[in-house]
């Protein structure tokens, strides 16, 4: 499914949560939405899912307004960490209702996930641990096979093994059934292998929209003699810098040609790759992020 947001703004009174959001999500791609707490990620996702109304601007999913639009909503699954369930519903009730709701629901896949995660289906949802509640959300998101699936920090409380199984299943299922997936997360390094495109949100605005490969290629750490490093980074976007004696270590983000790199290496500078997590931390850091 194709998503387009134009000049979207969301404010609660004087508190502006989102401002001037313009973005296009192409169909059948996996997007990562990253940003610090309170950056506006959940609000943005809720607006895409028509669970919130923008104060200004337009939202289009497959060229249509998703608000009260059955054709769009039936193709959309939004799994959020804050999802509440009826107190009296068991896990079985939840999954049966989801099955009755999503037209592309895969019951076999659902049962396989339930068995793998060892979900106690007869228990009431409110009795489950935080992690197990997240697992139920993840199962719904995966088994729904919705053409637009949104995960808003779906892994809260899930241990590393459970999270890795989720990522593996997401990738495997995506390969068989391509769909547009938006994954809002703090654990960028964990999901970096899944993502094709990253959207960075900072203080209610989109700071960056890049392909993961571009981000990976663009961020490097340059290490070397202080003066030489300073000369090299003059035209670069510096994310962070550390100096110890005469040796400086600078994280930069930009485009370095092969020739520039070879020349710098010949002058004694060394380059090392930077994790996506580190890039995001520095990009979204309040003081340094504006650099």
């Amino acid at each position: 499914m194709h998503v387009k947001l134009s000049k979207v703004r969301k404010a609660y009174g004087k508190n502006v949560v989102l401002n001037d959001i313009n973005m296009v999500l192409e169909k059948e791609k996996i997007y990562g939405l990253v940003g610090r707490n309170g950056a506006g990620k959940t609000t943005l996702l809720k607006i895409i899912a028509a669970q919130l109304f923008p104060s200004e601007g337009t939202v289009q999913v497959n060229e249509e307004n998703p608000f009260e639009n059955e054709a769009i909503l039936s193709q959309l699954c939004f799994v959020k960490e804050s999802q509440t369930y009826p107190d009296h519903f068991t896990v079985k009730d939840i999954l049966l209702t989801a099955k009755a709701t999503f037209p592309l629901w895969d019951e076999t896949f659902c049962q396989a996930l339930v068995a793998r995660y060892n979900v106690p289906v007869k228990l009431r949802m409110r009795k489950l641990s935080r992690g197990m509640r997240s697992v139920v959300g993840v199962i719904i998101g995966l088994a729904s096979r919705a053409p637009l699936t949104i995960f808003d920090e779906p892994y809260l409380g899930m241990d590393a093994v459970a999270r890795q199984y989720f990522y593996d299943q997401l990738l495997a299922d995506y390969a068989d059934h391509p769909r547009t997936i938006i994954l809002s997360t703090h654990l960028i390094d964990e999901v970096s292998e899944l993502l094709e495109h990253v959207i960075v949100v900072k203080e209610g605005r989109i700071l960056m929209q890049e392909d993961v490969e571009t981000l990976r290629a663009g961020a490097v750490t340059v290490t070397g003699e202080k003066g030489k490093v300073a000369a090299f980074i003059q035209q670069q976007h510096v994310l962070s810098s550390q100096t110890l004696g005469n040796v400086t270590n600078v994280m930069i983000f930009g485009t370095i040609s092969r020739q520039e790199r070879l020349q710098a290496e010949a002058e004694g500078l060394s380059f090392s790759a930077v994790s996506l997590q580190k890039v995001m931390v520095h990009l979204t850091d309040q003081e340094k992020g504006s650099a």
Binding site: A49, A50, Q51, E68, N69, E70, L73, S74, L76, C77, F78, V79, K80, Q83, T84, Y85, P86, D87, F89, I94, T97, A98, T101, F102, A146
Partner: peptide, 16 residues
Amino acid sequence: GQLFAFASGLSIKRMH
């Protein structure tokens, strides 16, 4: 209240 929160999570139309 409880069922609406759940239905909303399942992307069910409000009028439905």
